[in-house]
Simulated assay, not measured.
Amino acid sequence: MFGTIVNTILIILGTLIGTVLKKGIKEEYQTALFNAMGFAAVALGVNAVVQNMPNSTFPVLFIMSLAIGSFIGAALDLDGKFNTLVGRFGNSNLSKGLSTAILLFCIGTLSILGPIESALNNNHTYLLTNATLDFVTSMALAATYGIGIMFAAVVLFLWQGGIYLVAGYLEPFLTDSLMAEVSIIGGVLIFASGLSILGIKDSKTLNMLPALFVPVVWFFIISFL
């Protein structure tokens, strides 16, 4: 849980700094921060896909997973329901900022694969990298929306902590082949998140999140064949 604790602390710290400096950060500086973070997300996503694609044992599985997962997510309107739920709390501006913060902090590949890597291999690289990105993001968001962004740190702790616990119980099932497939899909999702941050394409990445579970179901099925 070391990486998750660091990630949570840095979000809180970034929120406090951003709140204090709220009147001192000009709009062009906020834009610069978001651009840098967006390009970093794109690069990390491409890197995850390129690194894991050669290790894929089912080359078309990630395509099927993205298609099926996106269909399920769109049918359930995960993105819309999430934003509606968050919108019930606080004023509209805070709700918008908090929604953006939770999406950026929780649905990226680093935030999903990081706790798994931490639990299984005691490798905190993903989470510490994610913590650095979240630190910058929380500063920028808090400078715009205020200290309410700190609530996203609680959501992130519960999210990553839950994944960490599940990964521990599923260790025998989480093979290298499965992790390669999940990493490819995760890379696509973080790439899509980067495009959203840069304002190039809003892919409603939350609707694509079920795609991460398709390879898990697939490997579970073939294990009985």
Rank of each mutant, 00 (worst) to 15 (best):
M150K: 03
I112V: 14
A101R: 00
N121A: 09
N123V: 06
L141G: 07
T132V: 14
N122W: 02
L156N: 13
F157H: 13
S138G: 09
I147Y: 14
F105T: 00
Y145H: 15
G146W: 12
N123K: 06
L113A: 06
T144K: 14
A140K: 12
T109I: 01
L120T: 00
L113R: 03
A131D: 05
N130S: 15
H124R: 14
S138A: 15
L141N: 05
V136G: 10
N123T: 08
N123F: 08
L103P: 00
E117G: 09
A131S: 15
S138N: 01
A101G: 01
I116S: 06
G148Y: 08
N122R: 09
T125C: 00
S118Y: 08
N130V: 01
A131V: 12
L103K: 02
S138F: 08
A101T: 00
L127Y: 10
L141Y: 05
T137Q: 13
Y145A: 10
A142I: 10
A101Y: 03
T144F: 02
F151V: 15
A142L: 06
T137S: 14
L110Y: 11
T132C: 13
T129V: 14
A119E: 09
A153T: 10
I107Y: 11
F157G: 05
L110P: 00
I116Y: 07
I147A: 15
I147D: 13
N123I: 04
T125S: 13
V136Y: 03
A142M: 09
I147C: 07
M139R: 08
C106Q: 06
G114V: 02
V136K: 07
F135G: 11
A101E: 03
E117R: 13
L156S: 13
M139Q: 13
I116H: 04
I107A: 02
E117H: 10
T144V: 06
N130L: 07
A131M: 13
T125I: 15
G146I: 09
N123M: 03
V155E: 03
H124V: 09
L156M: 12
F135N: 12
L104G: 01
A142R: 11
I147L: 15
I147Q: 12
A143Q: 01
G146S: 08
C106D: 04
L110T: 14
L133Q: 12
I112H: 01
A140N: 13
S118W: 04
T132S: 15
L141T: 06
I102R: 04
E117A: 03
L141P: 06
I102Q: 02
N121T: 03
P115A: 03
T125F: 11
L104N: 05
P115L: 09
F151G: 10
M139V: 15
N121F: 12
G114E: 04
Y126E: 08
M139Y: 09
G114W: 02
L103E: 02
I116N: 05
L141W: 04
E117Y: 07
F105Q: 02
H124A: 08
L103C: 02
M150I: 15
L120Q: 04
L127K: 14
F157S: 05
A101Q: 07
F151N: 07
A143K: 10
A101P: 04
L133E: 09
I102S: 05
I149G: 12
S111C: 03
D134A: 09
E117W: 06
L110A: 12
T125Q: 13
C106Y: 05
L104P: 00
V136N: 08
L127C: 09
L110N: 12
S118D: 12
M139T: 14
P115R: 08
L156H: 13
A153M: 08
C106E: 04
A140W: 03
M150S: 14
V136C: 12
